[in-house]
Amino acid sequence: MNIFVCVKQVPDTETKVTPNGDGTFIETNSIKWIMNPYDEFAVEQALLLKAAVAGSTVTVVRVGSVQDTEALRTALAMGADEAVLVESEDNLDSYMIAKSLKGGIEKSGKTPDIIFTGKQAIDDDCLQVPQLLAQMLEMPSVSVVVGFEHADGKVTLKREIEGGATEVYEVSAPVLVACNKGLNTPRYASLPGIMKAKRKPLQQLSLGDVGVSADDRRIKYSNFQLPPEKPPGKKFDAMDEGNQASVVAEVVGLLRNEAKVI
């Protein structure tokens, strides 16, 4: 079975984000990169499936800059067999990323039976690459998956929907599965795993190699800004019994006229 996992490298969740000079992206110089946390569930599920289906391989694909390849190395150290890196800037839009992933998968020389992704990336939270990629590859996709079973060529997926209910899908491969928290507990990359990862094959491609050009860009970032700072709250002193009536009147007035909530 040819199992693929698409991973994204995102800033560590504790990063203090600042816009870069011309506002086209964030400052990336001092960022510590990690694998997108939802993608860890995807890698884990791929490795569990590999262990269940003899003769399977797990190929992990990433689109992004080459300076730090943390996400791919982590996936290889966790147990993936090989990696494909499509080299690009980090600020591609969802369409370009999906098209690049498709190209990377095709260039690997393997036809995917199943593709795992995270349900979303925690940096831009676009939530559309899995669906775009599935569409481009003409295969079904199921997103926000919290349950996975594979038997006799059939895949049964549980999908979380709003209100706490679950939908159950039965799909035949090839299929794209976008994973959510709760699906599994991602393993740590062990130290022997880290040492072995060094010797695993990593195929490096350019955007041109996978047929993606500047014309594919649908969205251009132009003005990254930090959210405006929250103004400090107002404080009222109603400890003194003498002024309680006037404080209540003032607060009600502000809620009605300024905050417009009553």
Binding site: R73, A77, Y188, A189, S190, L191, I194, M195
Partner: peptide, 14 residues
């Protein structure tokens, strides 16, 4: 080295 960073990161995460 990148390997040492990974070793340190893993131990720290643990």
């Amino acid at each position: 080295s990148s390997e040492q960073k990974e070793i340190k990161d893993l131990a720290f995460k643990f």
